[in-house]
Design a protein around this nucleic acid. Structure first.
Length: 355
DNA sequence: TAGCCGTGGAC
DNA sequence: TGTCCAAGGCT
């Protein structure tokens, strides 16, 4: 049997036909209607990059990745360190490790083709409930209920769901499922996300421009901007630590090492440093210097905020005239630094040390 | 299940 | 300046 497409769904698809955002990874609705199908590899890559990350931040990375690795087999065969270097600055670095692992699995176990079902996609590393549904709907026309932060906001307003997140998730998923059509499920999912990104925004939603203004229960009740409700967040503690910018006499190259493969900034490059702790003693920081040298403390400090704590780093600098670096460390010339797998906090630290 | 896991832009 | 938060996943 064929389910009747709800009128609400048709209204939003009509809006999407006129107002879809033009994005590098998207096949626009007018092209899909004449038979153009999206490349599942590009859909997957964009969805991984877009996890908790803004469209503006993703665009250049997506362009660089698809230029360097146009097919999933090429990414599967790429050097893991090259992938981390290309991802540097985008954040959530476990995504890059899982990206590589997923590409290898698809190439080795699936003949280079992504699974076309939610269940099959969900089994791959880095693909959770949202991403599996998004790829299934957008790349394979499966009527999956795609639920991301935009959808949570739009549905909680449209249906006046006042249960706080995350307890409201099942209710929201059901609401999205009831509206998701058999035809154009991928366009519908992207339509709801575009609506959330451009009209049904977290603050000051542009209800007057919304194709769902009339049926929106939250707007009728005058509470649209207060939804979705969320549980209170815990405060971020401040950790402190020391970092050591060791420079090679002559050319000024900087000593780098690699962080452990998992955890915070896992697998990325760093300058040597102390632990980051709430009770860190800056006065004795130089005692933890990685090598004996004439260390100088730079004035001020480097501040950086992670997901769950603030960081204040005191930077020390020294010059090394002779002697080998510890095992696994390397010198990076000033020209080479830009291409290293350095997370943003480390680029700040190095800039402070060089300044 | 709630904590861990980055970054930059908007306000 | 501080807070929020953006196409979440993993453990």
């Amino acid at each position: 049997m064929t389910l009747k497409t709800p009128a609400l769904t048709q209204q939003l698809l009509a809006w999407y036909d006129r107002h879809a955002r033009d994005l590098p990874w998207r096949v626009p609705p007018h092209e899909r209607k004449v038979g153009v199908v999206p490349d599942p590899y590009r859909v997957w890559l964009s969805e991984i990059m877009l996890q908790q990350t803004t469209v503006a931040a993703v665009k250049d990375y997506f362009t660089a990745f698809t230029a360097k690795w146009p097919k999933v087999e090429m990414l599967a065969e790429a050097d893991a360190d090259d992938v981390m270097k290309a991802w540097a600055g985008l954040g959530y670095y476990s995504r890059a490790r899982n990206l590589k692992a997923c590409a290898e699995t698809v190439a080795r176990d699936h003949g280079g083709r992504f699974p076309d079902t939610e269940e099959g996609l969900r089994a791959l590393p880095g693909i959770g409930p949202y991403t599996a549904a998004a790829i299934a709907a957008i790349a394979f026309d499966q009527p999956a209920a795609v639920v991301d932060g935009n959808v949570e906001r739009v549905m909680s307003r449209l249906r006046l769901i006042e249960t706080p997140l995350p307890a409201a998730k099942p209710e929201i998923r059901a609401a999205m499922g009831e509206l998701t059509p058999q035809e154009r499920p991928g366009d519908f999912a992207q339509a709801v996300m575009d609506l959330g990104a451009t009209i049904c925004t977290p603050k000051r939603p542009a209800c007057a421009l919304c194709p769902w203004m009339e049926p929106c229960a939250a707007r009728a009740a005058g509470v649209a901007e207060t939804l979705p409700r969320k549980a209170a967040k815990t405060a971020k503690p401040t950790r402190t630590g020391a970092a050591f910018v060791l420079r090679r006499a002559g050319d000024g190259a900087v000593a780098l090492r690699k962080r452990p493969p998992k955890g915070l900034l896992g697998g990325m490059a760093e300058v040597p440093g102390s632990e980051w702790a709430v009770d860190f003693d800056v006065a004795s920081a130089v005692m933890q210097a990685p090598v004996a040298a004439n260390w100088h403390k730079r004035s001020g400090s480097v501040g950086h905020t992670f997901t769950h704590f603030h960081l204040e780093v005191t930077v020390f600098t020294a010059e090394l005239g002779a002697g080998d670096l510890p095992e696994g460390w390397w010198w990076s010339t000033l020209d080479a630094l830009e291409g290293e797998a350095l997370p943003t906090v480390m680029r700040k630290v190095i800039a402070h040390g060089l300044g």
